[in-house]
Each structure stands twice: as C-alpha cells, then as structure tokens.
Design a protein around this nucleic acid. Structure first.
Ligand code: FES
Ligand code: FES
Lengths: 159, 159
DNA sequence: ATATTAAAGGACAAAAATATCCTTTAATCT
DNA sequence: AGATTAAAGGATATTTTTGTCCTTTAATAT
C-alpha cells in the first residue's frame, strides 16, 4: 500500500540487478558448496532453510540448475542435490546465465534490439565498461571462492 | 513458446539491468533534450514515436517524471513535456532512481535484507566495486552529454 | 464563451515473475 | 516386494510489470 501504488500503479523501488530466482540459485549453489567433504549433498528443505527461500519455488530453480548440469540430483532417502563438477571450476556467471540468461552480459542498457558498435545507444560507450566489469567479476568468481568466505565466517547467506 | 516455458514456466532469458519503464524514461528525457532551442517541448505522441515505446504506458511514465520534477508538462494545444531545469545538471542516476528506485545503487546482490559491511553476502566485496562503477557512471553522465551524442549522429534512440 | 487540444488520472487487461499445492517417478530402506 | 523418502513435474494462484482504454482536467485558439 505504498504511496506510489496509490497514485500510479507503478512501484519500481525494488528493481535489483538479479532476479529473485537467480539469487536463490546462486545462494543454493553456494550453500551446497560450503558443505564439508563426505556430505556434500543437501535436500531441498535443508537448502531453502539455509538460504531463506520459499521451498516450492526453490524446487523449480534447483530443477533448472539440474537441467543446466550445474547440480545433479538423487531421489529417495538421503537424496538431494550436489554440485556437478568442481566448485573451483564453476563460476557465478554460469549460474546467472542459467537462470537470468545472458542479456545482462550482452544486452543494450537502453533497450535497443541489440547492442552494437555500429548503432549504439547514447550510453553504449560508458555502459560497456560496466557490463564488462560485472561479467568479468562473475566469470572469475568461483563457487569455491565464495563458499570459503562463508565457511570461514566472513560472509553470510542469510541474516 | 520457448523451450524454457515448455518445461518449467521459467523463461528468464530476458533479464536486463533496467526495467522497461526506466529505459522509456531515460530515452524520453534524452529525446526531449535533443530538441533545438526555442522548441524544447514535445508531446506524448511525438516522444513515444521517437523512442519507439507504447504510447499509453509511456504516458504513465512521463507523469511519474513530472511528479519527480524531472519533466514539467503543459496541457492543451502546443502542450507537452519539457525538461525541468538544466540538462547539464540532470544526471541519468536521477531518472533511474525516479523509476527503478535506488536498490540498484544500494541493494545486496544476493538478496540480503540490506547490504552492509557488518553482515556481507559472499559477493559483497566484489559487487561493491561494480555497483559503485555503475552508480558513478550514472551520476556523472548528464542528459546534455548523451543528447549531444544523439544530435551529432553517433548515438541512437531507436534502430 | 466555446471548441479544440493534450496531459492527468482511473479502471482494466495481459504478460511475466514469484509462489504454492498436489501427483508422479525413482531411489533407498526394511 | 512393500514402505518410505525425496526429487520431478503439472496445475494453479498471486503479485508485479507492462500495457490499453476511456473519462476528466486544464490549457490554448477561434
Ligand atoms: S547499444 Fe546500448 S549498451 Fe550497447
Ligand atoms: S551484502 Fe550483498 S552486496 Fe553487500
């Protein structure tokens, strides 16, 4: 019942960089990456509790991550999700791309059909640097990197 | 009818940095800033044609910009919207904040309630630099800057 | 004054994103 | 083999974002 909604049906004060789905995906993978050796698998309930996300919605996202070969899953007792591959070799960019797609990495800031040097929008030249900065960060930050920060207690997946 | 929708009701391959509303807002203000002296006012129809945006939706956004004192408007014949203030002193950050809010500038990348040094998410330290880069760019790029690029023909508002 | 013009505003509609519930499938345990 | 467990998947609901339409308000022109 915000001031905005009252007058204009627009309440954009919540726009973020990533979708919620994407954040849940990243957090879920980070959480599983933090698990100790020998028990590096977690179920939906455990994951969504750990990252404070709605269970059923998280289930959909985990399924999608399985389809993208980022997670693999096992059914039945002691089943759950574990990371497919080496967390040192899985980068945040892969998770973002799996869920939010690659428009953040390639799309035009001002909505032109496509971003190009030939026909640039008015912020193209300045936006490129930011886009590349973001892309570079995500492509060089591995799941292990961030999971370690959580394990040593300097970063958190929820509050 | 994408492959994604077929299987999971998730088709996030379009996530962008800014909302459509925000892009329309920026483009509309840039367009009006490109108008020659003596005729620096444009109507809804002219604007939405120039920036290739849906007219009625654009109307709502222009109203919002008026409420935020970025545009002022005049009704009746030869009415329309003109920039409130000096385009040299209006920065893209103000438009983004008016429409998308300030979460892009202040919010946590991974969805924590609030972004803070005390209780940072696992990408906080790396994300800060990107957020600041983006914020800095938007806070230092004036409407005049970008409008000039359009006027000299090196940038475009539509394709 | 009246007609015309264009923005403001309200109501509503469609699409996308977020979220829940329930059934089915497949793994494990007894 | 049968019971139990947990992911997969389908259907549906809610909220947010995007979009349209129509009436009202206010400015200008005749
Ligand atoms: S054309 Fe707009 S960001 Fe490249
Ligand atoms: S706490 Fe997540 S970006 Fe600062």
């Amino acid at each position: 019942m915000s001031f905005n909604i009252l007058y204009l049906h627009l309440d954009y004060t919540r726009r973020k960089m990533f979708s919620k789905a994407c954040k849940y995906a990243i957090n879920a993978m980070i959480y599983v990456a933090t698990l100790p050796e020998g028990q590096e698998r977690a179920g939906l309930k455990e994951i969504s509790k750990a990252i404070n996300s709605p269970e059923a919605f998280t289930a959909k996202i985990l399924q999608e991550l399985v389809r993208h070969d980022l997670f693999s899953s096992v059914k039945g007792p002691n089943g759950g999700f574990h990371i497919q591959g080496n967390p040192n070799k899985i980068f945040l960019s892969e998770i973002v791309e799996a869920i939010d797609g690659d428009m953040l990495f390639t799309g035009c800031a001002l909505g032109l059909e496509k971003c190009s040097e030939d026909h640039p929008c008015p912020v193209h030249h300045k936006f490129l640097a930011i886009r590349d900065h973001l892309t570079g960060m995500l492509m060089t930050t591995s799941l292990r990197d961030v999971a370690d920060r959580v394990n040593i207690g300097i970063s958190f997946l929820k509050y």
